[in-house]
Amino acid sequence: MSKKPITADLRLIDSHCHLLDEPLFSKLPEVIQAAFVSGVGAFIVPCSHAHDMAVLANLLTPYPNITPAFGVHPFYVHELALDDALALLRQHLEAYPQALVGEIGLDWADKHLSDANRLLQQDFFAAQLQTAQQYQRPVILHYRQSLDDMLAVVKTQQFQYGGFLHGYSGSIEQARPWLQLGFKLGLGSVLLKPNARKIYQLLPHLTSSDYVLETDAPYMVSSAMNQAYNEPKFVRAVAETLADFYQCAWQDIAAYSSANVASVLKPSCREE
């Protein structure tokens, strides 16, 4: 992996953290400050529930270093009718031209998933992806045992604005078509787990333009954190772990990740 110059004011970006979820939300100033002390200066925050959209919007003035992602997670598609959820999504995308669409996707991990829920997830994913295409926004994608199914939808819709594959854990063969479509692989706190063999098998095949750093805070807790929940400050540990693997400085990893985030966000920053 090649080196590149770094700047003294370089800050890490947590490209996926759930600041709306407890225990982070109730002590957000402390969480943001702890992250800043660790070198983390910006946060991409996805919604999970439809009602998260208004809550997240209210954070953007006091915390201008938050980039929002509005959408409905596949776990919660049953909470609101699709038409109503799409109306909320469009409302927030129109109000916030910097916003992504997310966290959206498909989750087939539950062996007892009903056919009705599977169809509902598919309807929500296709419709939210189409909305992202309409508003020219990148997406944040959640998947479990559904990566190929999601790729088929993305290709069918000819989606053009890329995004982030959250918590990537697939093979390099599965990753290549996503990378070709402008997506970046989210590498996060799973790297801090001693038994994360699958992700370490992937790392030798990645280039510095393939990934972004994330925590999924407050989830994806590792024993290395010495606390009961994850925080954005631990993206520094993710960067240091990758730096150890690639034999470079963590600031280099931060620079690569930040450049990759910027390459995805660029379409959503155009004047509308």
Rank of each mutant, 00 (worst) to 15 (best):
A34T: 07
I66T: 02
D52P: 07
Y219V: 08
T7N: 14
L129I: 12
D244C: 05
A35Y: 00
L265R: 08
L203S: 07
K4W: 12
P97E: 10
G162C: 08
M1C: 06
T207L: 09
N58C: 09
A254K: 01
F245Q: 00
G102W: 05
P64I: 03
H16M: 11
V190I: 15
N226L: 15
A109R: 15
Y135C: 08
V77L: 09
Q33P: 03
S38V: 02
M150A: 13
V45N: 01
L56D: 07
L187S: 03
T241S: 06
R137E: 04
A132S: 08
H166G: 02
N117G: 13
S114W: 13
Y219F: 13
S258A: 15
L89V: 10
V31T: 07
R176H: 10
P5Y: 01
L151K: 09
F125A: 02
Y246H: 10
P5G: 01
A239D: 02
F159V: 13
L213E: 00
L202W: 03
P138C: 05
A259F: 02
I32M: 05
L191M: 09
N58A: 13
F36E: 11
P138I: 04
K266V: 07
L179P: 09
S189C: 08
P204S: 12
A255P: 02
Q91R: 14
E272H: 14
V212K: 02
S257P: 12
L56S: 02
D148R: 10
D216N: 07
T67N: 09
S223G: 11
C248R: 05
Q122F: 14
P267R: 03
V264W: 15
F43I: 03
F43C: 00
Q227R: 14
S114L: 10
A69N: 12
N117H: 12
V235S: 04
K193W: 02
T131I: 10
L120K: 15
A81R: 15
Q33N: 06
P68F: 04
S258T: 11
C269P: 09
Y76G: 08
F124W: 13
I66M: 01
L120Y: 11
L60H: 02
I44F: 06
A152T: 10
P194E: 12
L191H: 09
A237G: 04
A34N: 09
K3R: 14
A228N: 15
Q128K: 06
H92V: 14
D210R: 04
A69T: 06
L141M: 05
F124Y: 14
I199C: 05
E30F: 14
W178G: 03
I253K: 01
N230Y: 08
Y229F: 15
L129N: 03
K184G: 02
E272K: 12
N230E: 00
D52N: 12
Y256L: 04
A35I: 06
H73L: 10
M53Q: 14
F75M: 12
K111G: 13
I104Q: 02
D83C: 13
